[in-house]
Design a binder for these strands. Structure first.
Lengths: 148, 148
DNA sequence: CTTGACCTTCCCATGATGGGAAGGACTACC
DNA sequence: GGTAGTCCTTCCCATCATGGGAAGGTCAAG
């Protein structure tokens, strides 16, 4: 199987397959005589595993660990669960940050007429509101606005 | 005021102030004889506006538009509200994607003993679950896992 | 005058992904 | 056996917002 077929079968783009190989997430593929990468069913299985983990928001680093655990028949399920729980906690943090932003924005938008007149409480707030960093309890709860 | 003081007063790092100037989000600062950037109260006001918008998750492009509207006394509040509502919609999309991930992960984790034994439903799922892209209604609802 | 804190520009890195160019390989059709 | 078109290869560049750090100039306090 060439990389294009492997991509279709796994749902991982050819660009990403090469990238994952380059950074060592997956082993270098076998090569044909013309140096084409070739993939077996087992490789597709691994790529689908990666695709699934990625869809659930795991980072490449986490996927490295998860793959290693997957391939270790003697792993402790507790190790896997710990990674999953840590990831859930991080997703919850992002969700909380987003919820805080939308709550504020919804409040501001609801007070804005949204018509042709210039008066706009949204801009007024941006111009006058104290910084989150000046409010210790807020920044402690949500940290930066980095939700990526 | 030098850039360090402007940074402290606005909550925007010196790196970011220079970057925002470079990409044209803010006007080039006035310079002292030694080519140091100098800032007036009005500039701090602008930087705080940016900081506030950034904390609410607006992109640089959105901030450009918002700044222009802010500085346009004749703007229509509807234009501002439209940007805010579009941003809220995007944040809601991200929140939904995160919620879908955490729901799945919580379910998987709850079925995992999390002890020293190797059996792990989380890894089993990763290895066997169908791809989101094979389930049209799911990918239509949530798109990619890109929550950044 | 030295020390240390500040400023400048320039380059590099992040993380995951895609775009695209230049060139080689393969396949299907005539 | 050409040729067209599709595939593959590697290499470089871009994204987005942010920070790190080097090399060197400036300034203020002692």
């Amino acid at each position: 199987m060439n990389i294009g077929e492997a991509s279709k079968a796994s749902g991982v783009s050819t660009k990403m397959i090469r990238y994952y190989e380059q950074i060592g997430l997956i082993a270098p593929a076998h090569r044909s005589e013309a140096q084409y990468r070739t993939y077996e069913d087992a490789d597709i299985h691994t790529l689908r595993f990666i695709r699934r983990a990625r869809d659930l928001g795991f980072s490449v680093e986490q996927m490295k660990t998860l793959l290693a655990l997957w391939q270790d028949r003697a792993r402790a399920s507790g190790d896997v669960k710990a990674i999953a729980l840590e990831h859930i906690a991080e997703l919850d943090r992002k969700a909380a940050a987003i919820a805080a932003m939308t709550a504020t924005l919804r409040h501001l938008a609801s007070n804005c007429h949204g018509d042709d007149r210039p008066n706009c409480p949204i801009l007024d707030d941006f111009a006058e509101a104290p910084l989150a960093s000046d409010m210790p309890e807020v920044s402690a709860r949500f940290g930066r606005a980095n939700i990526g």
